[in-house]
Design a protein around this nucleic acid. Sequence first.
DNA 1: GCCCCATTCTACTCTTCCGC
DNA 2: GCGGAAGAGTAGAATGGGGC
Length: 366
Amino acid sequence: MYSYEDPVFRQKEVLFPDYIPDHLPHREKEIKAISSIINSALKNPESISNIFIFGPPGTGKTASVKFIFRKLEEETAAFPVYINCFRINTRMGVVYAVIFEFFRKVRPTRRIPSRRGVAYDELFDLLVSELKKSRVFPVICLDEVDHLLPRGSEVLYDLSRLREESIPVQLIMITNDQFVFMNVDPRIKSSLRPVEEIPYRAYTIDEMKEIIRIRVEFAFQKGVVDEEAVEYLAEVACEMGGDVRIARETLLRAGELARQDGKFRVTVEHIKQALSESQFAKAKSIVEQLSSKERKIISLIPENGIFYPEFYELYRRVYPSGVRDRMLRYYLERLAKYGLITMERRGIGGSYFIRLNVPRRIFTQL
DNA sequence: GCCCCATTCTACTCTTCCGC
DNA sequence: GCGGAAGAGTAGAATGGGGC
């Protein structure tokens, strides 16, 4: 049988966003700290501390927790649940996600209840009774927890209060914003205590170089990626905030470019070319998750910006049956929160000036 | 027991109102 | 023009009653 060996990639999936490596270099200290908090809670459920992880994007926060969760599932009786609050950002959504995972992993024979037509309290009571019966130790990770606030913040209070029902539950909250809980209801803040804070700092150039080298070693065929290309990529990735995702995405694109030109060698030129696109990798992944309404709205914003009243007129002209003024503002506020646009108020009591933070081609390519 | 349909219940979306 | 709050509207699922 004919077998084809890729001349560029050896294990391309190493560069995919959902790939969790067996070893996370330069995050051993943080992983050890988080694991130790979880393990001591497992040994002594009376002394549970919630965990608050914060730091710049692309510094391995999510990868660390997913790495720890994999070990927890393999080696302990804990019941880890990972929830991305960008997608699941209501209290009902969070409780339903926990119940869904519980019935999938712990009680696979039980029918998963419907989400619609069931009261939140009813669903929460079901969660309480099932957790009580099963005696599992839930470790719930709320990634991008800032997207849960303020609408879904009540669920933090509810989940923390499970301990009053003698259910040992540990929350892990991940965010890029260290001060995310500053304006949260004091009642909710106090319910989350005690909290252990685990800060993640941006990678240094040397650390970035090593991380890229390891990825290159596993993902590419031997000798395909030039050393100068690795060094250049590490420097630029650090200048852009130390985001490993940019480096990973760039390597993937550069590999494809090297294949296209037929020389099967990744050079600095390939990296430069790939970087022009991958610097917007994060924005692109956010845009991919937007609802069709949000995409329609952002696609209408001109490259050179527009004042809100003018934009509302434009929107209504293009989508006469679309949302009204207040709702449009609400959607724009959300897009601003995602970092895709900037809303700057011009003058005292003046209108908002809306500006795109990413090139328009990001929306049109999807 | 099964099917159909109206009713009920719920979370979530969206509009309207009003004060600043 | 903006933003918070209240309430109406909507979609989806469960429930219950009637007819076969």
